[in-house]
Design a protein around this nucleic acid. Structure first.
Lengths: 343, 343
DNA sequence: ATAGTTTGCGGTAACGGTAACGCATTATAA
DNA sequence: TTATAATGCGTTACCGTTACCGCAAACTAT
């Protein structure tokens, strides 16, 4: 079925059919009805190629995310996924414009945000690590009527925006379960919460603690770190944690900084301390293979980036409805299966 | 850059440029050189939409797989992934033709194979559960010069064909590691190998046994079952396994039939027996949530199906090189993270 | 009544690429 | 030598959709 054939069947010109299809008015309700009936009857689907060719539109998606070096290089992973999606979609005239910010500097975020809004973009992808500012911006400037996708973290108060990422709370619960398998009863556990004002990180810690609250005989103690890129802080806290807990059997780190702890454990004690953390960055993988880190939880960052771009593509180019949530599986990574998660 | 502009720059007609681009001959080497230089200089990339519209080609991919009811309904999962990919790709005039066979009946496989080859298809997706016949067919009828993708299992002797699936051997190793965490030393373990002549299944069993060969103090005993869809066989073997191993602490099932064992354990003994198996089918999920099954290994069947179709799409439609291997991660599923793997 | 606007519709030129066709010119064969 | 084939290249009709242009006819306002 083509527009031409529909026109012939309806006894009108293709211009009229086009006007009906796109609701551009200037068609009598009679003709409109007739055309719509034929469209329905023959299940007409516009030819995507012809349409795209004719429109020869190009779309630009804005990506607002931390510079890739931060969080131990974590952000390079979603960026890679974004790039992969771009490589696949560039034939459809899709472009990506990156707006990086320093996640330890609010003003750089604000600047990136302004720059992004000032440039002509058709869709937005945000890693809302600055939850409160992002929230404020999105609520105050709600005149932005282009699709927005959150990845990595999200902001519970903001509705009607798609989220692609992981259920952090549940990942904390799962980590706790794994921890329980690794240690014996009555032993002590430390949670190292990195950047506690990030909603996402907080949820991981909450989930972990919640699991052990329902288990008898375990002591879980919480420690905070405010800059996940400062190795010195980790050195100090590792020492502190081990000294303060004589029966320490396990440490749970709430983000990619796990390797800092892994590195310092050896220096402080010879005892085996079970270690569970997040994210498949190089250094974490190293310590996982070495046996210092027992489990890593992965949130498929590459896939998150990839899917974020695709979500906008589907919504904007293919004009499909934007899916509200896309939850990434909570991947459990060990020495044995790590190789199937990298490269 | 468009063909028209290239033609103008080269001082020839667009027909000539087209002939150069598609190596359709009838162009002097001089002109050819000139045109190619301009193409290179301006990095000309043909407009995908225009090209597709003009060609208005349609492609049909043949899928050769077991009927979806077999292996406890496992095959519905890759089929769903194939369907998802189809839904996305149907706008590019891609069609899927399914050829189902009964995995307990060789002749039905042969019939499906013949039917597939007889119909006009541009690419093939096969689940080679009948390893030897598939091998024989592929070697003897190597005149098939269309892209072929294996999913689920593969045949080591066949080269130059893409494989999308999991490293079964390594998944066996990982299962063994998990099993070790669940049980105590000196306890007994049973491996229930379902359909031992399937390469894929065998590798899982081998990996599992290999892990424990290097560990002291564990006894691993192997049991075989020849029809994974016969619940009676599982009933008998469960009883046998538990009676024969008085210190039985764990059972490893090499495929989706795990739920049969889970169901029967309760009937035979009150002792907690750790159970590890494969695949996120409904019944397995039920027993996982109930706590009877401790871990399920998933091989992302849906994704396998999805990726198989995309592999052919990329190879045939986008004319990119077919990737040799796409290894699925070895997902570890527990009660806690199961919900993020379903729906 | 006249001018101006709205409505309903047909016609058509793009969008960029493809490949069949046609027409010279040159090479090869009988 | 003449018939036939091969070569080199331009022209053109599509592929299906989009959006603008234009023209009547009908309506509205002055």
């Amino acid at each position: 079925m083509t527009i031409k054939k529909i026109a012939k069947l309806a006894g009108v010109s293709i211009g009229t059919v086009d006007r009906v299809i796109h609701s551009r008015g200037r068609v009598s309700s009679e003709t409109k009805k007739k055309v719509n009936e034929i469209i329905k009857k023959y299940k007409y689907k516009p030819n995507f190629f012809a349409s795209s060719l004719s429109l020869s539109k190009s779309y630009t998606f804005g990506v607002l995310m931390p510079v890739t070096s931060q969080d131990s290089g974590y952000w390079a992973m979603p960026e890679k996924g974004i790039q992969n999606a771009y490589n696949e979609l560039s034939i459809y005239n899709i472009h990506i414009k990156y707006f990086y910010f320093n996640k330890h500097d609010e003003t750089s975020f604000k600047k990136a945000w302004k720059e992004m809004l000032a440039s002509k973009i058709n869709g937005i992808i945000i890693a809302p690590v600055f939850s409160s500012i992002t929230k404020y911006y999105l609520i105050s400037e709600m005149n932005i009527n282009i699709p927005i996708v959150f990845f990595d973290s999200y902001i519970p108060e903001i509705k009607n925006i798609a989220f692609i990422g992981q259920d952090s709370y549940q990942s904390g619960i799962l980590s706790a379960k794994l921890m329980k398998m690794l240690i014996n009863e009555k032993e002590e556990i430390a949670v190292i919460r990195v950047v506690p004002d990030d909603y996402h990180i907080n949820q991981r810690s909450n989930g972990f603690q919640h699991f052990f609250k329902n288990q008898n005989g375990y002591k879980v103690k919480l420690y905070d770190i405010f800059n996940g890129d400062n190795s010195e802080e980790f050195k100090l806290i590792t020492r502190k944690v081990i000294e303060e807990n004589k029966n320490l059997a396990g440490i749970f780190v709430t983000n990619a900084s796990t390797h800092y702890i892994a590195k310092n454990i050896k220096a402080v004690t010879d005892k085996k301390i079970s270690l569970i953390g997040y994210d498949l960055i190089q250094k974490n993988i190293y310590y996982l293979k070495e046996g210092i880190i027992d489990f890593l939880i992965s949130q498929r960052p590459e896939h998150q980036g990839y899917q974020s771009v695709y979500a906008l593509y589907r919504s904007i180019v293919l004009k499909k409805k934007l899916q509200k949530e896309l939850m990434m599986p909570i991947d459990i990574i060990t020495k044995e299966n790590i190789n199937y998660y990298i490269e």
